[in-house]
Design a binder for these strands. Structure first.
Lengths: 185, 185
DNA sequence: GGCCACATGTAAGCCGTTACATGATTTA
DNA sequence: TAAATCATGTAACGGCTTACATGTGGCC
């Protein structure tokens, strides 16, 4: 089974919302999908060039100010078809690696406090993330453009996951404390 | 910042529990960490050889039956130190990509039913996964070896996450149905 | 003047999966 | 006798990150 480059679709997808430059896409991804999809420079620019060559996108404008250029791209009908073809295909399930859980799994090798620290740090980050979600929610406001609704759904997903993890953190910390006490006796 | 090969630590970690062959490790990973850490053949065998050369593990036994050989490895004190060094280091937070959410995010590009189908399929898989967790729980039973407790914690994590996602699936499906009805009027 | 954001790109190189190669043993 | 499991390995290749390279414009 050939692996497909999903970056293509992330780029096409963003351009399906509105014409943008590579830099714009990067920023937009950071704003909206930061917790489930990121792209790096090393991917964005080369693949954008590829898409242009394949006529999946067209160069809408090249704005120049001095030696500073800005290339704005627009999705073409061919690109839109390709995007749709991918969107209707079944999601290929993949198991992401979780380093925290791997360290936890081998927790018996190190002192209990190490695991405790990892969980506390995770908890801290989760709380920060919840704040970000709240800000996004406010930004989304009551507008209901067709794609803001779908955005909202992904944010809701993130919130649920984070809250579940926060719950787990509490339980795990409690359990560790209990073990700690039973050992010190 | 150099990227470090975490497969090393997954292998060392498994060997810290007990001596095993590459094939054993693969099976053990599948049994215990399948939902947050997997390794493929193409990684396991070469890295096992590397670890042996660096004396982080030793070859405990080479059992042969005909032309079928089985190499059992044991972690060395050097390997154990390396494992511990990694375990105490802070977890580097990484955002895993989520293809389901990406397709959802671009949901406005395709008919509503497509998104519905993706979520239903996800729901189906989550339910299957819950069953697996229950089986693992039964297998873990009441034994309390030092590392089974940590295993339990990772299983608990998985269960929480899955349940949160199942809740989200219901909400999302309800929302989609509402939109569907308001459109058909 | 210095820092940050804007803006586009290239190159190196690891990481990891997939497919290939090989063959024995057990089980239905 | 066919299929599944046991068992170890290699090769190809793509994906992706990181670091490098370069320069402008605005703000404090």
């Amino acid at each position: 089974m050939k692996r497909i480059n999903k970056t293509r679709y992330a780029l096409l997808g963003m351009l399906s919302h509105q014409p943008m430059s590579g830099y714009d896409i990067k920023k937009a991804l950071h704003m909206s999908t930061q917790y489930f999809w990121q792209e790096s420079d090393g991917q964005i620019y080369p693949i954008l060039a590829e898409l242009l060559k394949e006529k999946c996108i067209t160069s809408l404008a090249i704005e120049s100010q001095g030696s500073r250029t800005r290339k704005v791209y627009q999705i073409s009908s061919k690109g839109l078809e390709e995007l749709k073809d991918w969107l209707v295909q079944e999601v290929v399930p993949t198991i992401p690696r979780n380093e925290l859980l791997l360290k936890l799994f081998f927790g018996s090798v190190v002192p209990l406090e190490i695991t405790q620290k990892h969980i506390l740090e995770h908890q801290r980050q989760l709380k920060k993330r919840l704040e970000t979600y709240k800000k996004i929610d406010q930004g989304l406001g009551d507008e209901k453009s067709p794609y803001q609704l779908y955005w909202q759904m992904t944010v809701e997903f993130g919130k649920q996951i984070v809250q579940a993890q926060l719950g787990w953190c509490q339980d795990a910390l409690k359990l560790l404390k209990k073990i700690e006490q039973s050992k010190s006796q």
